[in-house]
């Protein structure tokens, strides 16, 4: 459903992404893994229209996304959760969920989606009236995901969902990501937590120095000696 081809992104004269291609199939979880500074976040920001692409194409359900403003990409059903503090700190939990459903398409199904989100995260319902700034790290990530679900995504993009979270919370979050996929939302995530990401991902890509250097199913990559040496402490 998402096809990225030959994507090149530069900050001024400094090119960071060099011809990256990958795809996300319907109902699958795809992970992009790699070290810090490999261009993972940059790639995601270009997909979302927040950074201009120098070359290449990003097609979602056959439609070219490059050139569309970010809010229209969200309206198409591509929703990204940026890393850390994805929810608005100056808004309450309920207000965050309300603005999460900002596009006309999401607004039309606001009530049902809200009920679903509260069902997935009962904790958010309890803290409805609280400011997002008062939440714990794990609750913050739940709110970030809940807010993204309010936009009625067909493809959910997560940037480092495990960042700064305790291992047990990370387990929970990955469990939620699986549940979201099972509800018919495809998932694309960037992770440094390679072992765990390979476990949940149907397909994964390794990005180094702005280029894809390896790809395969989670099991294939786990067995790949290069991946083992560089990322898995075996």
């Amino acid at each position: 459903m998402l096809e990225v081809e030959g994507l090149e992104v530069a900050y001024g004269d400094l090119q960071v992404v060099w011809g990256v291609s990958f795809r996300v199939d319907r109902d699958s979880i795809v992970a992009i893994l790699g070290p810090n500074g490999a261009g993972k976040t940059t790639t995601l920001l270009a997909v979302m229209g927040l950074l201009p692409a120098k070359a290449g194409s990003v097609r979602f359900e056959g439609e070219e996304l490059i050139g569309l403003p970010t809010h229209q990409i969200v309206d198409r059903g591509v929703v990204m959760i940026p890393e850390e503090r994805a929810a608005f700190q100056s808004l309450t939990v309920a207000e965050n969920l309300e603005v999460g459903a900002y596009t006309p398409r999401a607004r039309a199904e606001y009530e049902e989606t809200l009920a679903e989100v509260y069902e997935i995260f009962p904790r958010l319902a309890e803290r409805r009236k609280q400011s997002a700034a008062t939440l714990s790290g794990g609750e913050r990530q739940m709110l970030a995901i809940g807010k993204a679900l309010m936009a009625r995504p067909r493809l959910l993009i997560l940037d480092e969902p495990s960042l700064g979270l305790a291992p047990i919370v990370v387990e929970d979050i990955f469990g939620v990501i699986r549940r979201i996929r099972d509800r018919g939302v495809s998932v694309l995530m960037v992770e440094q937590h390679v072992e765990m990401a390979l476990e949940v991902a149907d397909h994964a890509y390794i990005l180094e120095m702005g280029a894809i250097v390896a790809q395969g199913t989670g099991m294939e990559l786990e067995a790949d000696p290069r991946v083992q040496e560089a990322y898995l402490s075996l």
Binding site: M48, L50, P69, T70, H71, V74, D75, V79, M80, I81, P82, A86, F88, V99, G100, Y102, T103, A106, K147, A151
Partner: peptide, 9 residues
């Protein structure tokens, strides 16, 4: 930036 990612114009 986060507002844009939320779908806000």
């Amino acid at each position: 930036t986060r507002a844009a990612l939320t779908g806000i114009d």
